[in-house]
Each structure stands twice: as C-alpha cells, then as structure tokens.
Write a protein that binds this DNA or RNA. Structure first.
Lengths: 141, 141
DNA sequence: TACATACCTGACTAAAATGGTCAAGTATAG
DNA sequence: CTATACTTGACCATTTTAGTCAGGTATGTA
C-alpha cells in the first residue's frame, strides 16, 4: 500500500497556492519552480482539481489559479478524491466466483478492509488545508 | 493509494489456516481450493511468511503449514511486513534537490505523511489474527 | 524402496499503473 | 497583436503487480 506522488504533489501545490494567493492568482509556473514539480504534470493535476471545484482559474497574462474555498473548508479527502487518489482496499466485486460479491456472502476479510478504509478516511476528513498551513508556520521552507 | 492483493491473500490464507490447523498441518492446496487463490502464488506468499517466522512448515505427505504463534500474537503489521506490503507514503530521501531530504529542511507536507503513516500503522498494530477469527464466527463463509 | 504428496526456488511474463513528456491549441491582459 | 498562462489529449518509458511455469527437494506411507 502506498501513496502515489500525484496525491502528494496535489497537496504540496495547494499548500503553496494557499500561501501565495492573497492578492493575485498564482501561476502554475511559479508553483512548479518553487516546489520542483514538472509544469506539464501540474497542469494535469490542476485540471482535475478544477473539475472538482477546489480551485478556480483565470486565463491570460497575470492569470493563474486561486482556491475556490477557504483553506479550512478544503479537506484532504476532497483533494485526494479529485486527483483519483482514492483509498481502495478490496475489490471483491469481480471475484464473485469465490463467494465475495460484496453482498450476501462476504469473503473472510471483507469487514476488515471496510474498517481500514474508514479509519484512513477519517484521518483525511479531519485534516484541512488550514491545518497544514498552520503546522508550516514554524517549519517554514 | 491502494492495498495490493498479495497482502489481502496473505491475510485470507492465514485466517483460513488458523481455522483449520487444530490437528494437522494445512496444505496450501486446501487453502488454494477454499479461498480460490492460485497455488503457485500462495507458495510465494508462504515462503515469505515462513521467512518471518509467522508459519512453520512440514514436508512430505500429510505435510503443510501451521502458525508458529498464537493467533492473538500475530498482528496485521507482522503479516504485511512479511509480504512486503508496507505503508509507504513519502519517499523524500531521493528528492534532496528540492529541499526535502528528511532532515533539516522538510518539504511542506512531510509531517503530514508521517502522521498518516503512524495513523495507519496503529490500526495494523492493534488488529490480530484472533480479532479476525472472532469477527468471522458470526459471519462464517 | 518406490511413489505420491507437498514444500521450495527462481525465472519468466502479460497487463496495469505510474509519472511523466510533447504537441497543439484557446483565452485574455496589456 | 503578442506574450502569458490555462486547456486538452495523445503518447510513452519504467515499474509494479499478479501471477505462471518449470524445475527441483524432502518425507510419510504402502
């Protein structure tokens, strides 16, 4: 089980964005330079973030991205969901041949993964962008 | 972020094993048939479990595997560790070019992943094979 | 002793996911 | 009208996953 770097980049970029969008929109180019993430890759990620209305965009010179909500309203769940970084443990739906179809007869460990999933998600649901900003006040890059 | 099926199979197989090893060793062939997991794949998995002393093996006719500890002494952490199913969130060690080398200058989200990791691991450390056996008493396959 | 059973080992592979790059746009501020 | 910056979609190399396959080796039983 591992986290992909897409999810990590998304969070890094948004924290960066939250720090700098006070006045003007922030360009991906700036984020790319500051965080060391490929510009092209950032564009992919932000198109997803936009589709889920986590950020808004302005085109043209001086354009860029802005958060569409307040930092404390953006939870990690939202971010991960947007970039397809979902916590998926079991996919028993397909294995219907061997008893686990998610309905009547569950495989022996089915409940376990359900529990795990909600355990992880509860972590993501509590943490907001604001929390990350705060914990970075001291430990500033 | 997802769990691989190797980890899932390992847990399924061990629960199965725990249920049937009261008298004789359990052959992988039986587990394979009951759980619908390829025998060859099971062998790979059990060689790892054996290396970490979670199971013991007996060769020859009537041979098979037995747990080397009591079900309540086998935590999920142990199982996952054995089959290389480790929770790894960030690998910042290599990205040393951009500030995060895990030491002095951490990347903005470094602490976050550390927190996440221990949150997940605490779940795995609490759950033992015995817990799974119990919760399967009612919900028996 | 032979043979079937079951563990043991390592090489190999198809398919999917990951982590990007590249190319060709479109919109807009100045 | 031009530079900037978002937008879209195709493409690709590498790695990981989830196995398969082909050989073993050990051992209880007949």
């Amino acid at each position: 089980m591992k986290l992909t770097s897409r999810g990590r980049y998304a969070v890094m970029a948004l924290v960066d964005l939250a720090r700098f969008d006070n006045v003007n929109p922030v360009s991906l180019r700036d984020i790319s330079l500051r965080q060391g993430i490929s510009l092209d890759y950032l564009e992919q990620i932000f198109s997803k973030l936009k589709k889920d209305q986590i950020v808004k965009s302005t085109r043209g010179t001086q354009g860029g991205y802005v958060l569409s909500k307040k930092p404390n309203e953006i939870k990690l769940t939202n971010i991960f969901q947007a970039v397809d970084e979902k916590v998926k443990t079991v996919q028993c739906k397909k294995d219907s041949k061997k008893g686990c179809n998610g309905k009547a007869t569950k495989c022996i460990t089915h409940n376990l993964w359900d529990e795990l999933e909600s355990h992880i998600n509860s972590f993501f649901e509590k943490k907001s962008l604001e929390d990350l900003l705060k914990s970075n006040k001291e430990n500033r890059l």
